Simulated scan of single mutants.
Amino acid sequence: MLGGSAEESTGTPALPGDTRMDAALAALYDSSGRGKSKRRSAGLGASAPTVARWLGDIRTYFPSSVVQVMQKDAIDRLGLAQLLLEPELLDAVEPDVHLVGTLLSLNRVMPEASRATARTVVEKVVREVEERIAQSTKTAVTGALNRAARTTNPKLRDIDWNRTIQANLSHYLPEYRTVVPERLVGYGRKSNAVQRDVVLAIDQSGSMASSVVYASVFGAVLASMRALKTSLVVFDTAVVDLTEKLADPVDVLFGTQLGGGTDINRAIAYSQSLISRPDQSMFVLVSDLYEGGIRHEMLKRMAAMKTSGVQVVVLLALSDDGVPSFDRDHAAALGALGIPAFACTPDQFPDLLAVALERGDVGEWADRNTAGQG
Rank of each mutant, 00 (worst) to 15 (best):
D203Q: 12
D203S: 13
Q204Y: 11
Q204W: 10
Q204I: 10
Q204F: 12
S205P: 02
G206P: 01
S207V: 00
M208E: 04
A209T: 05
S210R: 05
V213S: 05
A215W: 02
S216Y: 07
S216A: 15
F218Y: 07
A220E: 00
L222H: 00
A223N: 01
R226L: 01
R226S: 03
A227G: 13
A227C: 08
L228S: 10
K229A: 12
V233H: 06
V234L: 14
D236R: 01
T237E: 08
A238W: 09
A238S: 11
D241S: 07
D241E: 07
L242D: 09
T243E: 13
T243A: 14
L246R: 13
L246V: 09
A247W: 05
D248Y: 13
D248F: 09
D251S: 15
L253C: 07
G255Q: 13
T256A: 09
Q257W: 15
Q257E: 15
G259P: 02
G259R: 00
G259I: 01
G260K: 08
G260S: 10
G261W: 15
G261L: 15
T262L: 13
D263F: 05
I264H: 14
N265A: 14
I268D: 00
I268S: 04
A269C: 06
Y270H: 13
S271Y: 08
Q272S: 03
P278W: 13
P278I: 05
S281H: 03
S281P: 03
M282N: 09
V284Y: 15
V284W: 15
L285M: 04
V286T: 08
S287D: 02
L289D: 03
Y290N: 09
E291T: 00
E291M: 04
E291I: 01
G292M: 09
G292L: 06
G293R: 09
R295M: 01
M298N: 02
M302C: 10
A303I: 06
